[in-house]
Write a protein that binds this DNA or RNA. Structure first.
Lengths: 136, 136
DNA sequence: TTGTACTGTAATAAAGTCGATTACAGAATG
DNA sequence: CATTCTGTAATCGACTTTATTACAGTACAA
């Protein structure tokens, strides 16, 4: 994925982590990221579906982390926003009459999985708290 | 990068590797990938600029690998097609009045670099010959 | 020496993707 | 019950990607 959603989601989570349990409104978050509030709500909705965020509707509502920042791995953020594969979706429809074309998607998928494994390994070792700690 | 160009370039190189020095025409390659020949020539042009492919113009022309497949690392293919960063370009322009927004791009860049390092490490260990060997 | 089969590349069009925006229903609070 | 939030659908425009057309240049071979 070369996904603009990863930085957005991480930004949201970082703000929530730094707010220490206080509910933040989507408009406030959108103001920090400088994007449209509806996009923020969509990402929040997605992060909530993945169990990373809890929200409260209505007046004085907003969102907060579902668990403490040291219990949220960056690999979870990756999984939450990931849709396509890492290096490019092998969505070409190669010629089945060609020996290479016939097999390449399967081998590409295998390659992507290996690489994604290495990436996830890295992200698993980092928590949201680790990320936040870099901020002064 | 979630780049459709990586699978295309790797497909091209795999075909050339399996052709064992024989010149392959861009139309033939395009037929195997099932995409437009002009796109293939553009990718070939790029791979040639990166020293991975040599081409011969004119009748009976075509392309071939610039070195043997076991001397081509998949990390070179990655570098050849890479333009944007891996997980998403941190091109948001966050609010500088927000303490998180002010610093996040710098920390995102750092994170991407670490992850890309892990990915490249994996790709460096694999040659085009390794990849081709999986085909039956 | 000329037709043919290629590459190389620019320019344009078509298709697909992504983010911004509008709109509005529903929920919680005071 | 007005206000301030969330949740979500729908649409528009900007951007990106891919396909297509066009054509000049090169090498070969008859």
């Amino acid at each position: 994925m070369n996904n603009g959603r990863f930085p957005i989601s991480l930004h949201i989570l970082t703000l929530l982590a730094s707010a220490e349990g206080e509910l933040l409104a989507s408009d406030y978050i959108a103001g920090s990221i400088n994007i449209n509030p509806v996009l923020v709500r969509k990402e929040i909705s997605n992060l909530r579906n993945h169990g990373l965020i809890e929200s409260k509707e209505g007046k004085n509502g907003g969102s907060t982390l579902a668990r403490s920042a040291d219990k949220i791995r960056l690999s979870e953020v990756y999984h939450a926003v990931q849709q396509a594969s890492l290096l490019g979706n092998s969505k070409n429809q190669p010629n089945p009459d060609c020996n290479v074309g016939k097999q390449i998607n399967q081998h590409l998928d295998h390659l992507y999985q290996e690489i994604e494994g290495a990436l996830l390994h890295k992200l698993e070792k980092m928590s949201l708290a680790d990320f936040l700690r870099q901020f002064q």
